[in-house]
Amino acid sequence: MKPCERIRKTSVGKKQVVALTGLALVGFLATHLAGNFLMFKGAQAFDSYAEFLEHQTLLPLAELGLLAFFLVHIVWGLKVFIENRRARPQRYAVEASTDAWPYAARWMGYSGVLTLVFLVVHVATFKFMGPEEGPEDSIFAWVMFNFKNPLYSFFYVGCMVSLAIHLSHGIKSAFQTLGVNDPRLTPFIERAGVAVALALTAGFASLPIWALTKGG
């Protein structure tokens, strides 16, 4: 069996692909958030950053790569999730967990699907609908216009909370799946994973909350 086929067919191989693409996507989220924070500097800073990105010749290539990472992570993650449902066709009458809060891990499939719904709405709003259809010819204004809609902001913040739950298990889990487990390192990875998840979520959610309360 060739390595690719082996990875595709073995449970551990599938998980390792999901883990690697997941960690890469966390990296993407961090850079995305750094860009978003320019909104706090005002319309000009944010708009010129957006324009700078749009004029990169390699942008379509980067977008395709990002799409591929998302697709692989989603498709293989769901595959693992569905296989796992099938492995226990009959559930226990008494469900007891040894964990105080086992839900982050149990909900990976659901929080993942919610994130996918968010992605579709998010890309549709900010990539395929533009400021030219909105009230003003500025991406900053278009973002603010959407964020000032309480319904949109509520959806946005809700999805970010779900993402935090997803990542609070996902990040530490990725390290274990890739074989990193060490009595000194693992407690740090587990705490850092939760911290990164919370920091990313707080960062992303801060913008719609800021738009709603302060009004930019």
Partner: peptide, 18 residues
């Protein structure tokens, strides 16, 4: 061993540590 594990109908580990 992993091939047989998967073929036997066991699920994938999702690191829940139960």
């Amino acid at each position: 061993m992993l091939d047989m594990h998967d073929a036997s109908g066991f699920g994938n580990c999702t690191n829940e540590y139960e």
